[in-house]
């Protein structure tokens, strides 16, 4: 019972230390803020690029073409030299009825081309623009990518917290208190997982508001498993390392292992859905990934206990 109480207090203390560190909090809120920012900027860019640009029509453009363009909702503006109108950047598309000059042949431009081809009775034409549908599946995929970012921070927490505490003497002092040694590894794993999972949960809420996340349960479980797995990888790779013994080697190894596990999710989704971190990009209900993450956490705590006993 006293061991559990010690575990709880140590975990709370570590969570408090992590949350009091401004750079840690900023780093974890970064992916959460990055999502709405990127999405909004993308939509703004899309509106600007694909917006209601007028069509420049040259003097020789048949009236029928101009009328058809107007009927389709395009604004037409007479221009003397349609090619130059596009070249100088004033128009994104302009025509003389036979040729369509464009800055880029895509999206709305193809709808101008469709009108020209219909007017000419061409053999092939662009189909009418398909209205975009609304689905929330993309939110789950985006969360997978965000989860990979959290995993990288998990590796940092697992490895750097041990390295820092070992080098400033905190870990030595804690080990001398007489509490069971496994508590020190377990508290670091639990604290890192809690702080990451808290911010991952926030990211889900944010994404659900602006893009939608269908099937939030599996997304949440796979994310929590990945956060926990990331911290466990950090604890495993730091070994007996610290700042005095070299920190960059274990960190680079940990980050590479985490990235490779994430890549496994794309390469072998069948197996990957049961593996923490890999399941982020592979899908699955998340229960087995969560179980595997707990097992990986147990292994990391066990290794930490053995190594700290020897160090």
């Amino acid at each position: 019972m006293s061991d559990l109480r010690a575990l709880a207090w140590l975990t709370i203390d570590l969570v408090r230390r992590l949350l009091r560190e401004p750079q840690v909090v900023r780093s974890l809120l970064w992916p959460v803020a990055l999502v709405p920012l990127t999405l909004m900027l993308t939509v703004f860019a899309y509106v600007w690029l694909e917006g209601d640009w007028p069509v420049g029509v040259g003097p020789s453009t048949p009236t029928e073409v101009v009328e058809r363009l107007k009927d389709e909702g395009f604004t037409t503006v007479p221009v003397e030299a349609p090619r130059d109108a596009v070249l100088t950047g004033g128009y994104r598309y302009a025509t003389d009825g036979d040729t369509l000059w464009v800055s880029a042949a895509r999206g709305r431009t193809l709808q101008v081309e469709r009108v020209l081809r219909e007017a000419k009775g061409a053999r092939w034409r662009m189909g009418p623009a398909i209205p975009p549908n609304a689905n929330e599946e993309q939110g789950g995929r985006v969360m997978g990518v965000i989860g990979v970012l959290f995993v990288l921070f998990g590796v940092v927490f697992g490895a750097a917290v041990v390295a820092r505490d070992r080098d400033d003497g905190t870990l030595e002092a804690q080990l001398a208190t007489g509490t069971a040694r496994w508590i020190h590894g377990a508290s670091r794993w639990l604290a890192g997982t809690f702080v990451l999972a808290l911010h991952y949960g926030l990211a889900i809420l944010v994404l659900h508001a602006i893009l939608g996340v269908s099937d939030a349960g599996p997304v949440t479980r796979n994310g929590f498993a990945a956060c926990s797995g990331g911290v466990a990888v950090g604890l495993l790779v730091i070994g007996r390392g610290g700042l005095k013994n070299g920190f960059s080697g274990p960190l680079a190894t940990g980050l590479t292992v985490a990235t490779l596990l994430a890549g496994l999710g794309l390469l072998a989704p069948g197996v990957a859905r049961h593996v923490p971190i890999a399941s982020l990009l592979a899908g699955g209900d998340g229960w087995t990934a969560l179980g595997s993450a707990c097992a990986l956490g147990g292994l990391a705590v066990g290794m930490f206990t053995l190594r700290s006993a020897r160090s």
Binding site: E21, V24, S27, A160, V161, L243, F247
Partner: peptide
């Protein structure tokens, strides 16, 4: 200006 390696790594990684 970071105090320790946790803060340093977090800011670098971000």
């Amino acid at each position: 200006r970071t105090e320790d390696v946790v803060a340093g790594t977090s800011v670098s990684l971000r």
